[in-house]
Design a binder for these strands. Structure first.
Length: 912
RNA sequence: GCCCAUGUGGCGGAAUUGGUAGACGCAGCAGACUCAAAAUCUGCCAUUCGCAAGGGUGUGAAGGUUCGAUUCCUUUCGUGGGCACCA
């Protein structure tokens, strides 16, 4: 009987489906365990081999935990709102709902073929009204809440109103509040709501009449059509995530994420301590606040080294302080900056640009007149949008000073050599008046105290993180449950939700760059908000909905979320390190603060899977011709590099016939070969349809079966590591499964397994494997687990061990990795219940006890021989044995060793 | 530019606390079985010198710490990911 994986997999997938083997109950005596995948965006390209990497890993873990006796929640769904479906709709006229539906069907079909243990009865889709009803509901909670710094948590906005009514605030009295117009009151409240609207800058493309995502802007022009893109201010919605900055930082100490992941989040939040201080602009009315420039610095100790100020080009004061003489060049510079993205501004620091305003500020400590410049390396969004430049201590300031020939003041003596800045905090300050002689790191505190006592500034903690933009001028997203009346945002009634996304025929932008919803008359008449929520809205809380997916009274019953608790293991890519993970952490904290759930961190443990990259192939077309030159000869010509479908390439050799047949353009292609072959260029990049480097899992499953595919993906390498896909090795894993099969069945003789008793050698193999598989599975070290299975099967084959008592345990170990073949062989062994609910073998160390070990013997750290020595032997005995060894004696050349290092159970090193 | 990760045979990778570098697999080579093929099995497989025994070199590069470094430290180069409207 042969290993017929096609039949076996079909049989058991069907069997599990019929018996509802993966359905999970919220009511169980077993301890709960929640394993979550980052749900996919159902793109039109379908699943490629990169997607299942994390899914297989989580599937293995879920099945393993189930064997270990847990009630495992392992759901799947679709993040089905988003930009690509809308872009596709603009191109083809097909409604996003239609294409999304189709794409999901494809995804599910592909996922099912791989044999995942999802409980599909809990499936969610973020674009379904049943789901986004609660996204809207949570938005309303955010809108109706504020962050109370006293209690350090979100509270109903009513408590703030009460405060204003009874005690007022820093800026106004209770009486004043009560006398404010309703409009003014709402404006003030808007400055505290966790979801709020304010003006923000967007990428505006005049020619397309629309706002563009960063992704749609390439080299400063629109991807579609190549039109110019500029920054434009528009009214936007935001989430006040900055209020949670400190708690998001502290929360990291309570979760099990990788250090690098925590580091990325910390850097994103970017907490820095320093101070704000005012510089007065010279030759202006002194007591006019408008002409004080507030800078933020983390290095107030360098105050005597300030040689100039730099404002962000967008800074409010630029226009007012610019002198008439400089106005022309400033305006020119501002036009230039408007065309530049933040990214470009940060990245191209070597290209130093800036413009002098003509104005001077006064250093409050020494009265020095310092020039005020504007430059794009200062960003309006961070700190106060103005910096004090200290060229001797900051490299960017230094380069700027050098470029514009601004004289540099040195306050750190020999620590500054005039060729580059020195950012040290360890230098002793000079030429710094009251700070002279202090170490810089100590001077920071002294300087801040002085600044505060003079009333020209104050200590300030700053965060790099900005409030999260939460509106998009798009169609395919959640509508905001908000009406605008008289300039005031009015929340819809919660009972009226969902506010359904209306059907449209056209997906183009509305007037003035508004979203497509602005084109709908009834929507406009009701004064409903015309932008929609961003892609991350639905994904910020989906893990809660899985727990209680059908509830129509609330987003998730508190009793149910209390039962499941935090996600025990969350698996996904690092590309979400700062976006999705921070947003969902914030939403969880808000829901916790408001009492809707019982935990304030969503994910207890996070496992990052690496990205499976595509290995792209390139051909080189000689410019202006239809002639293609092989990789090695391309430098002799002027060529264009073009992606070619990896399926036409064997290694790096192009199948020129297949290429010619690929597209009509290439039908008459001519080739310049090297050594009779056309060789392609190679580059590793993201796997993507547009790069023609995708590999479809369906083909592999068809050819080798799901079990082989699952194990091969795991065998590729460590789960957290990125690696390019290569199908070459899959044969090896398939051979392994066939070899396993032959332990049970002979192709000719049929059944070969027996019920004999196991020998010590066989039990030793089994228990070593149990130990290794169990710890590798716990640690997500699946590549080494697969190799341990191979070692085990190789050894059992060598021993011709066909014993049921060994093999059935091996099957249980294997079930999480290769469920179909395990279930099949399990039943062949005579079991009548599913292997899914077997119980995990228990490791017994007594089978592995050894009495001696072959010790590696090194001379000066270099391995020279091995000697079998009793494990119980102590240093003196070992020394004697080692020194009497022939090879050791040869190296000693009759001398006594200087030292003998003996690490019991590990090694011996003789130092001569 | 900034942040994070990463670099080991022809290839994917292993070496979990500093202790035998190259497990396991792919590809390759030689052989067995076969009329033949497939499948399967056996052996070889970092590099260099050597008939062999054995020796030298070797974990991106350069230094350092240590009896001993793929592992720790410093410097440096390459590659991948993220950088706020892709999800």
């Amino acid at each position: 009987m042969e290993y017929n994986f096609i039949e076996i997999e079909k049989k058991w997938q069907n069997n599990w489906k019929v018996s509802k083997a993966y359905q999970v109950s919220n009511d169980s005596s077993k301890p709960p365990f929640y394993v979550l995948d980052m749900f996919p965006y159902p793109s039109g390209a379908g699943l490629h081999v990169g997607h299942p990497l994390g899914y297989i890993a989580s599937d293995i873990y879920s099945r393993y935990k189930r064997l270990k006796g847990f009630n495992v929640l392992h759901p799947m769904g679709f993040d089905s709102f988003g930009l690509p479906a809308e872009q596709y709709a603009i191109e083809t006229g097909q409604h996003p709902a239609t294409t999304t539906q189709k794409n999901i069907a494809t995804f599910k079909d592909q996922l099912d073929k791989i044999g995942f243990c999802y409980d599909w009865s809990r499936e969610i889709r973020t674009s379904e009204p049943d789901y986004y009803r609660w996204t809207q509901w949570i938005f309303l909670q955010l809108f109706k809440s504020w962050f109370n710094p006293q209690s350090n948590k979100a509270e109903s906005i009513q408590t703030l109103i009460q405060q204003f009514e009874t005690t007022g605030s820093e800026n106004f009295s209770a009486e004043a509040w009560n006398s404010f117009s309703k409009n003014k009151q709402q404006d003030i409240l808007m400055q505290h709501r966790l979801a709020f609207s304010a003006f923000g800058e967007v990428n505006w493309c005049e020619a397309l009449g629309t706002v563009l995502a960063n992704d749609e802007v390439v080299n400063g022009v629109s991807e579609r059509g190549g039109h110019p893109v500029i920054k434009k201010k528009m009214l936007q919605w935001y989430l006040r995530i900055t209020d949670y900055a400190d708690r998001l930082l502290e929360g990291l100490n309570t979760v099990d994420f990788s250090d690098s992941m925590k580091e990325m989040q910390r850097n994103w939040i970017g907490k820095s301590e320093g101070c704000e201080m005012d510089f007065e602009v010279a030759n202006q009315t002194v007591n006019n606040d408008a002409f004080k420039i507030k800078v933020y610095t983390t290095r107030p100790d360098t105050i005597f080294g300030v040689d100039f100020l730099v404002l962000a080009p967008e800074h409010d004061l630029v226009n007012q302080i610019t002198t008439e003489a400089q106005r022309g060049s400033i305006n020119e510079y501002l036009t230039y900056v408007k065309s530049r993205s933040d990214r470009e501004r940060m990245a191209e620091v070597k290209q130093i640009t800036g413009c002098f305003t003509g104005a001077f500020a006064t250093n409050p400590f020494n009265g020095k007149q310092i020039p005020i410049w504007i430059a794009e390396y200062v960003l309006a969004g961070y700190g106060t949008g103005a910096i004090m430049a200290v060229p001797c201590g900051d490299q960017r300031d230094f380069l700027f000073a050098q470029h514009f020939e601004i004289p540099i003041t040195n306050i750190i003596g020999s620590h500054f050599d005039g060729t580059q800045a020195n950012p040290t905090k360890e230098a002793t300050l000079q030429a710094s008046d009251f700070l002279n002689g202090l170490l810089m790191k100590d001077a920071i505190k002294v300087a801040i105290e002085k600044i505060e006592s003079l009333g020209i500034g104050k200590r300030k903690v700053n965060f790099k993180m900005r409030d999260a933009g939460f509106s998009r001028q798009r169609y395919w997203g959640e509508p905001f449950p908000i009406r605008w009346e008289d300039g005031m945002a009015i929340a819809s009634e919660e009972t009226q939700l969902p506010l359904e996304l209306p059907h449209v025929e056209k997906y183009g932008p509305g007037p003035e760059g508004e979203g497509p919803l602005a084109n709908i008359e009834s929507w406009k008449n009701e004064k409903l908000e015309t932008s929609t929520m961003p892609g991350y809205a639905g994904s910020s809380w989906y893990f809660l909905r899985y727990m209680d997916p059908k509830n129509s009274n609330t987003f998730c019953d508190k009793k149910v979320s209390d039962y499941w608790g935090q996600v025990n293991v969350y698996i996904g890519g690092t590309e979400h390190a700062v976006g999705h993970l921070l947003y969902s952490r914030m939403w969880t904290k808000v829901l916790f603060d408001l009492g809707f759930i019982g935990f304030d961190e969503p994910f207890k443990r996070l496992v990052n899977q690496g990205m499976i990259q595509g290995s792209s192939r390139f051909v080189y077309r000689i410019k202006g011709t239809n002639e293609f030159v092989s990789f090695g000869l391309k430098d002799n010509y002027e060529t264009d590099e073009l992606h070619v479908d990896v399926n036409f390439v064997d290694g790096i050799e192009l199948d020129t016939d297949a290429f010619s047949n690929w597209k009509p353009d290439y039908a008459n292609a001519r080739f310049i070969l090297e050594e009779g072959k056309y060789l392609c260029g190679v580059e590793v990049e993201k796997m993507s349809k547009s790069k023609f480097n995708t590999v479809n899992p369906d083909d592999l499953v068809l050819k080798y079966g799901a079990d082989t595919f699952r194990m091969y993906e795991m065998f590729l390498g460590p789960i957290e590591q990125s690696k390019p896909w290569d199908t070459k090795g899959i044969e090896g894993v398939h051979r392994f499964l066939r070899k396993l099969w032959r332990l049970f069945n002979d192709d000719l003789k049929g059944k070969v397994w027996n019920e004999e008793n196991a020998t010590d050698a066989e039990l030793k193999i089994l228990h070593r494997t149990i130990k290794k598989i169990e710890s590798d599975t716990e640690n997500f070290s699946y590549n080494t687990a697969v190799s341990a299975f191979m070692v085990c099967v190789n050894e059992l084959s060598d021993l011709k061990c066909h014993k049921k008592t060994i093999l059935e345990n091996l099957l249980i170990l294997l079930m999480p990795y290769a469920p179909h073949i395990s279930e099949e062989l399990w039943h062949q062994l005579g079991h009548t219940t599913s292997i899914l609910d077997a119980s995990y073998p228990i490791f017994d160390a007594s089978y592995l006890v050894e009495s001696s070990k072959s010790y590696p013997i090194s001379i000066n750290g270099k391995l020279r021989t091995n000697i079998e020595i009793l494990l119980a032997a102590e240093q003196s005995e070992v020394e004697q044995i080692v020194l009497s060894n022939e090879i050791v004696q040869k190296w000693l050349e009759g001398n006594a060793p200087k030292k003998i290092i003996f690490v019991k159970g590990k090694m011996v090193n003789v130092v001569i």
